Simulated scan of single mutants.
Amino acid sequence: MTRAVVFAYHNVGARCLRVLLARGVDVALVVTHEDNPNENIWFECVADIAREYGIPVAAPDDPNTPEFVACLRALNADFFFSFYYRLMLKSALLALPRRGGYNMHGSLLPKYRGRVPVNWAVLHGEHETGATLHRMVEKPDAGGIVAQQAIPILPDDTAGEVFNKITLAAEIALYDILPQLIAGTAPHVLPDLKAGSYFGGRKPEDGRIDWSKSAHEVHNLIRAVAPPYPGAFCDFAGHRLLITRSLGLPGQREEAGKPQLCLKEGSLFARCGDGGLVRILSLTLDDEAIDPGSLLDHLGANPIPLN
């Protein structure tokens, strides 16, 4: 029987762990993270799944310590799998599995290597992304690709909605390729890193809206950081506006002028720096959800100047 150690977190980790078990892989240990009490935990718990199946669980602060490496060496694993595990596995760990280590990444590599690839893809207005299973090497997201599954990004999809599609894409990609991986017949195609891109992490402050940008860019930011992520926001007269959902209106624009929020026939619109319009579908005012159509009454202005 094929034996694996699984490093996993989040929904992709949960679904891919279930795929390994469904395909008859002996999971000797699940390595995961303790949940951060300051983080919005909206995703499935990998540790709970492991315990349901009687699989031992570890959550080290650093899996690369000599002591933990020694523990994993004793398990004699054929494979290591990393499914949305948040820490890099260094060379001493990657040298342990007899058949290699493999990572599931949330983009169509070599595009969007690095952190939060779904959010970056939505922010940049991509029409497609996907999940990629690749061999782990020391350089992030640079090893041979063994499987990919593409998914569409619709014009008004939020990053959360795209992430749900990525989760399914990861499950399909792993389920389909796993028999070949175990048999040793899976192809390994080295990515052309020059044709791709690398991105770092994002902070809540990166969600601040610059209304002087085009309507297309503003709409992409709103949906890229929409809940369950921290959200896109701006400040007006001492109030914090958090825009949680918007609708792109390609081709609809007014004469370019200073950005503003205005009410038309009961709906709230933002005029952006290029004169393009974005319809605001939901928002919070000082952490309280309100009807967008009532915002101007709350703030006592119509229109509301932005920036």
Rank of each mutant, 00 (worst) to 15 (best):
T2Q: 01
R3A: 00
A4E: 00
F7C: 00
N11T: 15
V12D: 00
C16M: 10
L20C: 11
A22K: 06
V25I: 08
D26C: 01
V27Y: 10
A28D: 00
A28M: 01
L29T: 02
V30M: 05
P37S: 02
P37H: 02
N38W: 13
E44Y: 02
E44F: 02
A47L: 03
A47D: 04
A47P: 07
P56T: 04
P56L: 02
N64A: 06
C71V: 15
C71W: 08
C71D: 12
R73A: 15
R73M: 10
N76L: 00
F80Y: 04
S82W: 02
S82Y: 05
K90V: 10
L96K: 01
P97I: 03
G100N: 00
P110M: 10
Y112I: 05
V116W: 11
N119Q: 15
G125E: 09
E128G: 02
G130E: 10
G130V: 06
L133H: 01
H134V: 02
M136N: 04
E138S: 14
E138Q: 08
A142M: 09
G144R: 09
A147S: 14
A147L: 07
Q148A: 07
N164F: 05
A170V: 05
E171P: 00
L181Q: 00
I182W: 01
A183H: 02
A186Y: 03
L190R: 04
L190N: 09
L193V: 12
K194A: 15
A195H: 05
K203F: 14
E205A: 15
D210R: 14
S214C: 08
E217T: 11
I222A: 06
P228H: 14
G231H: 14
A232D: 08
D235N: 13
H239F: 05
R240F: 13
L242I: 15
I243V: 15
T244E: 12
L249S: 08
L249A: 13
G251L: 06
A256E: 13
G257F: 06
C262L: 15
G266M: 01
S267T: 11
A270H: 09
D274I: 10
L277R: 13
L277A: 05
R279N: 12
I280E: 05
S282K: 12
D286I: 09
E288D: 11
E288H: 09
A289Q: 13
L299S: 14
N302A: 15
